[in-house]
Design a protein around this nucleic acid. Structure first.
Lengths: 119, 119
DNA sequence: ATGAGACATCGAAGTCTGTCAATATTGATG
DNA sequence: CATCAATATTGACAGACTTCGATGTCTCAT
């Protein structure tokens, strides 16, 4: 999941203002990273993610997450789904309860990627 | 700009599944970071940012950026404005031309922040 | 001054997103 | 089996987003 974010796709060098210091992102790379950032780019989802990350065993039950927000249960369920489908949260159903866990690899991948652009 | 992303706002400890390892984000923190991520969460803006970052002197003229996309000039102008208002790009008008420059501090701030959540 | 070029702003069209109430699904329990 | 509790899915709606063509603004050169 989340692959390396750095490999793949030949970079089509684009005309720019001056000699390039580092290669710009390819179109494919941008279209691969943007959905991950879009999944993160919501205050509720950021808090959900950080709540899960803040739990001692790195996992949180949906029922506890629901209680932390003034939002309906379907809305929280929707946001969790978005984070899950983006690969940022792993799902684990145990009995009636569902536990979500942060995918640290994916999160660190994004972090490293952004750090690389800024460098 | 972009402040520290780490300071401010007392963290309201939220009921969670188990003892907290680290404090979760505050509501205010989430609402401060989300707009930055939203500004980044678009393939065109990601490429714009990386194109500017890839230039030797870290700055790019709008006219060159326009040529790198199959999009209208107003559309590119709009995306540059979004990145500028989010504090990710600095603007510098010289004569008829406008140059944009990456705000590395803001970018690294986000990167460090995400790395912190994942840790 | 007048014209041309670089960039921004405006207004509109179409699409996507966040949220909810209602309902379905799944698992435990009596 | 019937029921209850925990999550997910559906359908609807309001607001936000991306994109464009048309137009405005500013600056330089003629």
């Amino acid at each position: 999941m989340s692959k390396s974010l750095i490999e793949l796709t030949p970079v089509q060098t684009v005309a720019c203002c001056s000699p390039l210091v580092q290669e710009p992102m390819s179109v494919q790379q941008a279209e691969q990273v943007a959905p991950l950032l879009k999944a993160l780019a919501d205050p509720v989802r950021l808090r959900l993610l950080s709540l899960v990350a803040a739990c001692a065993d790195q996992e949180a039950c949906v029922c506890d997450l629901n209680d932390a927000f003034d939002l309906s249960q379907p809305t929280i369920s929707h946001h969790l789904k978005v984070l899950h489908e983006a690969g940022l949260l792993d799902r684990d159903k145990r009995g009636v309860w569902v536990y979500y866990r942060v995918n640290a690899e994916a999160l660190n991948g994004i972090s490293a990627f952004l750090g690389g652009v800024g460098a």
